[in-house]
Design a protein around this nucleic acid. Structure first.
Length: 169
DNA sequence: TCAATGATTTTG
DNA sequence: AAAATCATTGAT
């Protein structure tokens, strides 16, 4: 066996395939030379300019630029002045999609995920395929995956507010 | 129920 | 230039 890393083929699919596929996957982060593994337990999908909950619904801006890249890069941004959100860009180039990492094993909340993983803006645009400090690997097993509505996006209108694009185990 | 807290986006 | 908007959390 070579390694268990997920490659760009995995990420360059539609976000609604990648997001549930990430549940149970292992997120690996090197901090001060020490490796730590995290099982992804909850994610949300954000897809396209038509998704009013997706930042790309405002169009292509300096902030959303990364979402227009081909899948396999991180999209990092600050929310409420205190929490870094970590997303993984998916899909093809010029198709803005991303998966929010909402929970990992024994940690809850997407703000605390990035805090625990020591994620900051220097990771914006970072490749999760080539990076020496963060990547994804095949996980433990194929757990049962549940769906529900996304959190914290009540502004997005009746339709987008209610699509069940949050996936968890 | 709401304050904290700052980058991004809009003129709400 | 100023105001509003947040993929949140935790403490009142």
């Amino acid at each position: 066996m070579i390694n268990n890393k997920l490659n760009s083929t995995f990420f360059q699919r539609d976000v609604l395939e990648v997001a549930p596929g990430l549940i149970g996957k292992k997120l690996v982060r090197i901090i001060n030379g020490i490796r730590s593994d995290w099982i992804i337990t909850e994610v949300e999908a954000y897809r396209g300019e038509e998704d009013l909950a997706c930042h790309a619904s405002k169009g292509r801006t300096k902030r959303t630029e990364v979402m227009y890249h081909a899948g396999g890069e991180l999209y990092i941004y600050l929310i409420y002045g205190m929490y870094w959100m970590m997303n993984i860009v998916t899909g093809d180039i010029n198709d803005p999609q991303a998966v929010l990492i909402r929970g990992v094993q024994h940690i809850s909340g997407p703000g605390k995920v990035s805090r625990a993983l020591k994620i900051d803006s220097s990771f914006n645009g970072e490749s999760v395929v080539n990076s020496e400090r963060i990547w994804l690997e095949k996980g433990i097993r194929a757990p049962e995956i549940h769906c529900a509505t996304r959190i914290g996006i009540d502004y997005a209108g009746d339709y987008w507010r209610n699509v069940e694009w949050r996936f968890f185990m």
